[in-house]
Design a protein around this nucleic acid. Sequence first.
DNA 1: TAGTGTGAACGTTTTCACAGCT
DNA 2: AGCTGTGAAAACGTTCACACTA
Lengths: 215, 215
Amino acid sequence: MSEHEREVPAATIARLPRYLRALDELAGQAATTASSEQLAELAGVGSPLLRRDLSHLGSHGVRGVGYDVAQLREQMASALGLAADLAVLIIGIGNLGHALASYMAGGRVGYRVAALVDADPRVVGTEVAGLTVEDERDLAEVVRRERVALAVIATPSEAAQQVCGRLVDAGVTGILTFAPVALRVPPGVGVRSVDLASELQILAFRVHGEAGQGS
Amino acid sequence: MSEHEREVPAATIARLPRYLRALDELAGQAATTASSEQLAELAGVGSPLLRRDLSHLGSHGVRGVGYDVAQLREQMASALGLAADLAVLIIGIGNLGHALASYMAGGRVGYRVAALVDADPRVVGTEVAGLTVEDERDLAEVVRRERVALAVIATPSEAAQQVCGRLVDAGVTGILTFAPVALRVPPGVGVRSVDLASELQILAFRVHGEAGQGS
DNA sequence: TAGTGTGAACGTTTTCACAGCT
DNA sequence: AGCTGTGAAAACGTTCACACTA
């Protein structure tokens, strides 16, 4: 019994959500079957890449026909672990955190916004997106109570590393941060970072010295 | 005269903003010089990678000493084209667009939020982050007036492709989208996409089947 | 016929290791 | 003595092209 059942490349995993959305769109159009070409088109990738990605999931399409939309959707959702319906906590309910709470509460699958937390006494106790903002000092307790697996950091940069450490200590294993600092986490904890300023700067690069294509 | 002056790899460009921030942090601590090790630590990358990246910019550190913080910062800012102070337009002033406007108006270098645009008559005319929201039908005019180079799409998904096309037609060459759809753009236009739901799904992946490290 | 699954080629990105400069 | 800059190698990711199959 070898231990390397699934060795799905990180780059592939990062594309699965797009494929999933493409499948949802096709399902909404009452399509029962789809070719790699169609799916790739919707997902914005080349069809060989999509086929390669699906093959990593041990996919079984039908040659000459394509993939069964419903079945593939199921398979992908399970690969992504969406059945779990993970509890997500948002910490830092300022402008951005507030918007994220509303935006995400609007019911995508695979997770649910379970708690909101802030350090500002003026914010604590207010209601946002149907949830009452709790005190940041109770962070560990909230994480335990809601069995929080994923956290979104929308605090000021200065607080991010401190908050991150406390989240990890409390048992959170996935962190999405909007603070523009490199977070230090122990192995076993996933971090993804979204940095608006950086994204614009990267876009700016191509502007000043002529352009090319970009993703 | 060969035309290939700078052939900076895309992966390197994507890291420059992080380096720039690391430099700013060091500058704030009154450091005049920094080693690749220190910079790499702050930026959250390995030091060989940082050195390689800087070498693509034709960097000149001092052996045995390190890099001059102020000079490198200057060099990097100019490589990124931050001097230009590009005009950014945000389209779609809902929850998210509103937050982005406030968040970004707070003065990072390299760009400035020059205009806000929305399709909803109830939003048009309101003031957000010191700017009056303009009518989406005047999009092309606004782009011309403010010489908009970069646009942020925060509209509903359904509107994104349509809006994207109009932005490109109006002359925008860089687009940052929050809508979870693959945008089609002509060559020469850069697109970067930030998708909150996807990020969480990607994080969820490692949760259900044990973990590893992740960036 | 139409479309998957994949070996092999390719290109890119990262790491290693160390020569060379100050 | 210390740290940069970079050749050479390894790892990774993508594309190509086509054998195979329903």
